[in-house]
Design a protein around this nucleic acid. Structure first.
Length: 936
RNA sequence: GCCCGGGUGGUGGAAUAGGUAGACACGCAGGACUUAAAAUCCUGUGAGCAGCAAUGUUCAUACGGGUUCGAUUCCCGUCCCGGGUACCA
């Protein structure tokens, strides 16, 4: 027998015998699946808690190591809440409709459903390996007809409701029709797409069916209109504003242009105020709430009509302003190139040319020239209603057609854009606020005392705004008005792989399907491309007709449709009669904790709040806000590694020596690098070009450089969680992802520290087992030191989990295990509670130890250990005081100590002198620490 | 430009009702065990100065000021980095 081989073999065995994570994890994952350990049912005897992850889009690339970060955090919290006696709903599903599967279908002809199912299977396999406590019986896939039936149903409801602005609630459109029949639209309070629309009851009844239909479209919460949309020719579809960045599609980076098209929209703007108010009642981060507030962009001000001179029929020009107090300083007006007033005149040729050029320029071109001031005098004048002065009307593309009225009054002294324009064209600038200097820039602050402003002189700005609005209303030239930046959401996509609309066309008008005909299933098509006539792909399903003759709507719904109510469906995923049963909805109510990325701040998180509020108005759900608390986990970036090739050679120089050469930095696959040391032999095999590479080493090693970059294939820095699980186990992965840093912070993935976490689990294992891996836990009573260590960690874990400070909780465990190892503790009284504490973080090893401790039930049903503060003061106490010549006692004295005892302890402590330093002290907290540590 | 975050050792990061800065971990160095390796364990580890040493001492939380007996923490200014947003009247 060869000794070397023998040694290697036995040590290899003992290594695995010690803490055999792969066997333990396999065993428990199997058992959890078999026993449906994480199945949850409504239970009125227990308080509920709903923990939700943003469900993933199953992409072909599979999960990378960044995805599970949030899932692990939510899993820890779910498991913790369960130990605390809550009935925890913790589901998972897939946002399964989307472009990549369709792109793949276009290239290969494979049905997107096949691609999607395969990707979902892969995701599921990866997720299962990490040991999540999802109730998979509640899985929701948005592409499943049983689910999208309810997306379609809600669309029908949106179509057949309007928004009552007085009641602040959605109501059936039939009620509106009754009101219109009675009084016309003069006395109805309803959110309307066209604020200038007025008609009487008589006019209403005189309308043709088609005109009534068109009129109701202005009120429906889901409606059709011709609108400028972001048309992406390469994708053959319309994109939402948040799917476009810098004139390019977010997905694919194809150019996007403006195009007029008939589209479905959702009237989310009707809910703008409620979306804003609701933010005050939910527990989200300030920055996220602020992002949503900015996105909604509510600004209060007034609409004011300026008399347009030299035009027939008392023409006027209406503007919106947030600063009606500055009307006295309005020295000119500006209209957007699309403004209707321009069609009433015959402009000079150069003006006409400017207008047509500005109109035809894409949004992108307009944006790229933000800093260039351009514009033309139209030849028209208006009258300033406060000064009576004639002021010129200009046209410029810095005024946008889509916001306000498409026209502004320019107050160059107090608006920086007007200022730049006035300076460029030499227009008047009249300062209106006492003491402001407008020689080099405008004074935009809403603060100061009015001057040069007639009846407003001497008032504070805020006061003047109110007074000006009052005056405007008296003059009958305008009124207070609220404007929003938020736009209605375009809801059509010229795509195949999405929910079909439950709509067919008859007499050129859309009609909804009756709900009992739902779901309207996606038809099969021969190709996933637009038809020859430019219809969307659904146009290829030529026999797909309502009653065999009426054409269905050919576009499909956008990605956010399916993700807007999935969290409600989880409450009752198999219900065939409702989105969710009423009683079940009233039990689970809404999501208590939602964890996901910040990239959804203005998309999904806005749409789903709107969708939920609508369902609330219908009485379908019992909570107005869907997500009580929300946490944004940070992104995990990649950590790329580099090698340095000496220019023009095949010689690579180690990081520390590279400055002596002229080198070329090259990305190297991170699997060839460990702790920044390159595996030279594997590197040579990695790429044939490097087979004969030579190396200049330092200390016998090749050290790689590194940089933090986005995780991407091309940078060879993608880390797959499966690889980590195989090498270290799921429990190590879970702990390490948490240990990496604060949950909400973005951080690079860096495996350099993972050994430490793995080592911790092995140390933990050795608390329960001896060298021969024999279970050694004793039933002896624990010592005070051991109990102190235990109760310290109980408190720490409890506080840290509640604060979502999982990284410091893991540190706490490490300290605790080090302490217990030092104390040689192997007492059940300590180890049993410790096992429970660890269960949310490392469930597999916890279950295994729990079983070894003799329990037959799952550790998930254990009770979270009770913290006893007395255990911490067994031998010593921590006691805060303050000292300002006289001691102040901040807490009740512990353990029968008198004030005199404490005074002596403090005064005899050598540190006291150091801090007193002979000076008079105020509000001095005694150190060491705000806490003194005195042994009795 | 504006609005949010953030800047602490070689590295990831601890610590804020203002109170011993650098917990915990990685890495590194040295040591023990071993024929050897792996694993494990022990010791040291912000920088400088003095000392054989225990130790003492100075400087350190992006930079510059301020408040305070005391500031990583609060205030003012500056510079960098990340995210959001963008001609919104």
């Amino acid at each position: 027998m060869l000794p070397s081989r023998n040694f290697f073999y036995t040590d290899f065995l003992s290594f695995f015998m010690e803490y055999n994570f792969s066997e333990i994890e396999k065993k428990w994952q199997q058992r959890w699946r078999q026993d449906k350990t994480y199945r949850v049912v409504e239970d009125l005897r227990k308080p509920k808690y709903y923990v939700l992850d943003m469900f993933p889009y199953p992409s072909g690339a599979g999960l990378h190591v960044g995805h599970p970060l949030g899932y692990i955090a939510s899993d820890i919290y779910s498991r913790y809440k369960r130990l605390r006696g809550f009935n925890v709903l913790h589901p998972m599903g897939y946002d399964a409709f989307g472009l990549p599967a369709e792109q793949y279908a276009i290239q290969t002809g494979q049905h997107p459903r096949v691609t999607t199912d395969a990707n979902i299977a892969r995701y599921r396999e990866q997720l299962d390996k990490i040991g999540f406590s999802f109730d998979w019986d509640r899985e929701v896939k948005t592409c499943n007809p049983e689910y999208y039936k309810w997306t379609q149903k809600t669309f029908i409801d949106l179509y057949s409701h309007y928004y009552d602005t007085a009641a602040q609630k959605a109501k059936p459109i039939a009620e509106l029709v009754t009101a219109l029949e009675k009084n016309g639209n003069l006395s109805v309070s309803a959110a309307c797409g066209n604020p200038d629309l007025t008609f009487t009851a008589a006019e209403w009844s005189a309308m043709s069916a088609y005109n009534r239909h068109q009129t109701l479209m202005e009120y429906r919460l889901a409606y059709q209109k011709d609108g400028m949309v972001n048309w992406c020719a390469a994708l053959g579809t319309v994109l939402a504003n948040d799917e476009v960045a810098n004139g390019l599609s977010v997905r694919g980076g194809h150019p996007v242009e403006r195009k007029l098209m008939r589209q479905w929209y959702l009237r989310i703007t009707a809910y703008a105020d409620r979306l804003l108010d609701g933010l005050n009642r939910i527990n989200w981060s300030d920055s996220l709430k602020e992002t949503q507030r900015n996105w909604i962009g509510r600004s209060t001000g007034a609409n004011v009509r300026f008399k347009a001179l030299h035009l027939p029929m008392n023409a006027s020009l209406e503007i919106f302003t947030t600063r009606p107090d500055t009307i006295f300083g309005a020295t000119f007006m500006v209209v957007c190139p699309e403004h209707p007033i321009l069609s009433q005149i015959t402009p000079e040729p150069d003006v006409a040319e400017y207008v047509s050029r500005a109109k035809n320029r894409s949004e992108r071109e307009r944006q790229s020239e933000v800093k260039n001031v351009s514009g033309m005098f139209t030849g028209l004048y208006a009258e300033n209603p406060f000064t009576g002065r004639q002021i010129p009307i200009w046209v410029s593309d810095y005024v946008l057609a889509g916001y306000g009225t498409g026209a502004i009054m320019a107050v160059p002294a107090h608006d920086s854009r007007d200022y730049a324009f006035a300076k460029h064209f030499g227009l008047d600038i009249i300062p209106l606020i006492e003491g402001c200097d407008v020689s080099t820039e405008s004074f935009d602050a809403k603060d100061g005392i009015m001057v040069n402003s007639g009846f407003l002189n001497g008032m504070q700005v805020k006061e003047a705004i109110g007074a000006a609005i009052k005056k405007v209303e008296e003059l009958g030239i305008g009124s207070a008005r609220v404007n929003y930046r938020l736009r209605d959401a375009t809801f059509s996509r010229q795509r195949y792989w999405g929910e079909p609309f439950p709509i067919y066309y008859k007499d050129d008008m859309p009609h909804t399907l009756s709900p009992d005909m739902l779901p309207l299933e996606l038809p099969e098509v021969d190709k996933y491309l637009p038809t020859e006539t430019g219809d969307p792909p659904l146009g290829r399903a030529t026999t797909w007709k309502y009653e065999g003759k009426y054409s269905y709507e050919l576009s499909t719904m956008p990605g956010f449709a399916g993700s807007s109510a999935y969290f409600i469906r989880y409450m009752d995923p198999h219900n065939n009669a409702r989105l969710a049963d009423k009683a079940k909805n009233e039990y689970w109510r809404n999501v208590d904790l939602y964890i996901g990325g910040t990239e959804h701040a203005t998309g999904h998180l806005m749409y789903s709040r709107f969708w939920n509020k609508f369902l609330f108005d219908l009485g379908e759900v019992c909570e107005d806000e869907p997500f009580q608390k929300l946490i944004n986990q940070g992104m995990i970036q990649g950590r790329s590694s580099f090698v340095y090739r000496v220019a023009g050679t095949n010689t690579f120089v180690s990081l520390g020596l590279k400055d002596k050469y002229e080198v070329q930095e090259i990305h190297v696959d991170i699997s060839l690098v460990q702790n920044d040391v390159l595996d030279v032999e594997r590197f040579k095999r990695w790429n044939p070009d490097y087979a004969n590479a030579e190396f200049i080493l330092e200390n016998g090693k090749y050290i790689c450089g590194w940089a933090v970059e986005k995780m991407s294939k091309s940078m060879y820095n993608v880390v797959n969680p499966d690889d980590v699980v195989i090498r270290y186990g799921a429990d190590t992965l879970r702990l390490y992802e948490m240990f990496l840093g604060p949950l909400e912070m973005s951080k690079p993935w860096d495996t350099n520290g993972i050994d430490g976490v793995h080592r911790f689990l092995r140390k933990l294992w050795r608390l329960y087992h001896d060298r021969n891996n024999t279970f050694t836990v004793s039933n002896e009573k624990a010592t005070p030191q051991e109990l102190k260590a235990l109760h310290k960690i109980i408190k720490k874990v409890q506080d840290d989990i509640e604060a979502f400070s999982f990284n410091t909780a893991v540190s706490g465990f490490m300290i605790c295990v080090n302490e217990l190892t030092e104390l040689g503790c192997c007492k059940r009284e300590v180890l049993e509670p410790l096992t429970i504490l660890l269960a949310p973080f490392a469930p597999h090893i916890a279950e295994e130890l729990w079983e070894t401790l003799g329990h037959t039930n799952t550790i998930c049903d254990a009770a979270f250990p009770e913290f006893n503060p007395d255990m911490l003061v067994e031998n010593s106490f921590e006691y805060p005081i303050s000292f300002n010549g006289k001691l102040r006692y901040k807490k009740e004295l512990p353990l029968g100590l008198s004030k005199e005892d404490v005074r002596l302890l403090v005064e005899n402590d050598p540190n006291t002198e150091k801090f007193l330093d002979g000076k008079p002290m105020k509000n001095f907290v005694y150190v060491p620490g705000k806490i003194i540590n005195i042994v009795c």
